[in-house]
């Protein structure tokens, strides 16, 4: 379902309240953007130089507030078609009987407007942002019959849209539901980890938009990167590690209910 005018209004109201309520957000964004300059390594000079980097991603589920800023930023940055998502936010609510309820209305592009469970029956609730895991042994790269999906030397899984035949095998092979066929081009599409931004010293659009630093993109080869720092300090999990895809998206505070 697409957001209606009413949804737009309430989204606008929501944003206004959020912005007004949390006065520190602009300051925090400014702070983070100056920080990311320090933490992001200098851009590569040539193609061989790419091997110096290994891009990874971290999602701190304990910090996500489900505002959906990341989803909106991603749509805007990458022109994602309506009804499809390069990133989305899932909401998990556990009721008093221990039953888990999950939703992600329109990928949470307009945040979460209504409660999933009534407050009194809710025991535990949390948000989990999702995106391409940029797996080291990605199933999508393996199954692409024409080699259109490939691993960059710096560890990002990308699609060569000039080669993709749009067979959809990668969509089936991705265990995380991150891929789709873009009807406008007839080719596969998914998160690029904002590859066009990374080597200009900028972080991903979603990480930049996150008001809570719940998303961190960084270089796994750089010991001083914020990503490595959090991975050193916190416990984290991976999605469906048993499938052997060796994801590079790390989830802090991952609940076993999340797949």
């Amino acid at each position: 379902m697409r957001p209606t005018n009413e949804d737009d209004l309430s989204r606008r109201r929501f944003l206004r309240i959020t912005l007004a309520g949390v006065g520190g957000v602009p300051a925090a964004t400014l702070f983070l953007s100056t920080q990311s300059k320090d933490l992001f390594p200098p851009p590569p000079t040539d193609l061989d130089d790419l091997g110096r980097f290994e891009w990874g991603f971290l999602v701190d589920t304990t910090r996500c507030i489900g505002c959906g800023s990341c989803v909106r930023a991603c749509q805007k940055e990458n022109g994602v078609p309506d009804g499809y998502y390069r990133t989305w936010v899932e909401r998990y609510e556990v009721d008093k009987d221990g039953e888990v309820h999950v939703d992600s209305p329109d990928g949470a592009i307009a945040s979460f407007q209504t409660d999933l469970l009534p407050r009194e029956t809710r025991n535990k609730a949390f948000f989990v942002p999702k995106l391409c895991n940029h797996c080291r042994s990605s199933a999508c790269t393996q199954v692409c019959p024409v080699g259109a999906t490939f691993d960059t030397p710096d560890g990002v899984v990308l699609i060569d849209k000039d080669r993709c035949v749009g067979c959809g095998y990668c969509v089936q092979a991705c265990p995380y539901g991150c891929r789709y066929i873009d009807e406008r081009t007839g080719t596969a599409d998914k998160c690029t980890l904002c590859y066009h931004r990374l080597h200009r010293g900028m972080t991903t659009a979603c990480a930049e938009a996150c008001p809570r630093e719940a998303r961190i993109c960084g270089d796994l080869r750089a010991p001083k990167s914020r990503l490595r720092q959090v991975l050193r300090e916190r416990r984290y999990g991976l999605l469906k590690p048993d499938l052997g895809t060796r994801p590079k998206c790390y989830y802090v505070g991952l609940d076993p209910e999340v797949v």
Partner: peptide, 10 residues
């Protein structure tokens, strides 16, 4: 619950 991209059967 289905992943948002799974609403379209490929």
């Amino acid at each position: 619950f289905v992943f948002p991209n799974e609403q379209h059967v490929t």
